[in-house]
């Protein structure tokens, strides 16, 4: 990788200052995307600011069924959390299905969201559960956070502090993992929040995670897997790559959504 300057601040203020002073700084929250990208010379930040030394960004808390998960909380910590298991068990299953055990020991929820990989799992949960992304500057509703493939509405130097998930009546996530990478070819999170059904699809969209109005309407009328049989699922705007065509992904969306509803 190209030379870079590594920082490990112990406060959010120091992290912000390091980012402000950097010519082209990048936040490192786990590094399982950033470091491979730097090795391939696809990223060459002048400074890398590791936020894992900031205690306030780490940990899980629950209040009235709502969960707050710190940005540097690892996938393994979410997967094994009794607090998450009680409030939102589907999040534990989602986290337990990311990568492999060694990856889950290091990769973090904040890193996954800030990177917004179109095949990442967490964006589906955040969008389906209508979560709030809390940064050092503002609270960003999920609807306003994701902004296309590998793109979010985070501004330069803005740092995710935590994700706040509202209490949900039900939630379930299923995915069809790519057999080699374990990234989602299609992943569907189905949730009921405040009496409303929300369906978020990851892995399939050219612009990253998206909600599906047709499936939400059908499930609002009848919350059952068969209710999805007659929903039109267009392959417009879906990814086509060496792993599968848009048409194949459109087919998978229905299959995987039905599995999620069946286990919700």
């Amino acid at each position: 990788m190209y030379p870079t300057k590594y920082h490990k601040p112990d406060s959010l203020e120091a992290a912000s200052a390091a980012m402000a002073a950097a010519e082209d700084g990048k936040i490192l929250a786990g590094g399982h995307t950033l470091l491979p990208t730097m090795k391939q010379h696809l990223a060459a930040p002048s400074d890398v600011v590791d936020i894992r030394g900031i205690a306030a960004l780490h940990g899980i808390s629950e209040r009235g069924g709502a969960l707050t998960i710190g940005a540097t909380t690892t996938h393994a910590e979410v997967a094994n959390s009794a607090v998450v298991a009680a409030a939102c068990p589907a999040l534990c299953c989602l986290a337990a299905g990311i990568g492999d055990p060694a990856v889950r020991h290091v990769g973090t929820i904040g890193g996954s969201l800030a990177n917004n990989d179109p095949a990442a799992d967490y964006p589906a949960a955040v969008l389906a559960l209508n979560a709030m992304v809390i940064t050092n500057r503002r609270d960003i509703p999920a609807e306003d956070f994701f902004d296309g493939m590998f793109t979010t509405t985070l501004e330069d130097g803005e740092i995710i502090k935590a994700i706040r998930f509202p209490a949900s009546e039900c939630g379930s996530y299923s995915k069809f993992p790519n057999p080699a990478s374990r990234y989602a070819m299609v992943g569907v999170y189905v949730a009921r929040v405040d009496g409303r059904v929300r369906v978020a699809v990851t892995g399939a969209g050219e612009d990253g995670v998206f909600r599906h109005d047709g499936m939400e309407a059908a499930l609002s009328a009848e919350f059952a897997p068969d209710a999805l049989d007659s929903v039109e699922i267009s392959d417009d705007g879906l990814l086509s790559d060496l792993h599968g065509t848009a048409e194949y992904r459109a087919h998978l969306i229905r299959v995987i959504a039905k599995r999620s509803v069946a286990t919700c």
Binding site: Y6, K8, L28, G31, H32, L35, P36, V48, D50, R52, A76, P101, A102, V103, H105, V106
Partner: peptide
């Protein structure tokens, strides 16, 4: 794979400085 602070991690995807 090595263990850092008791957990298995992929040492090719961690900066030495981050493990300090």
């Amino acid at each position: 794979v090595v263990h850092v602070d008791g957990k298995a991690v992929k040492s090719c995807t961690m900066l030495a400085a981050a493990a300090a």
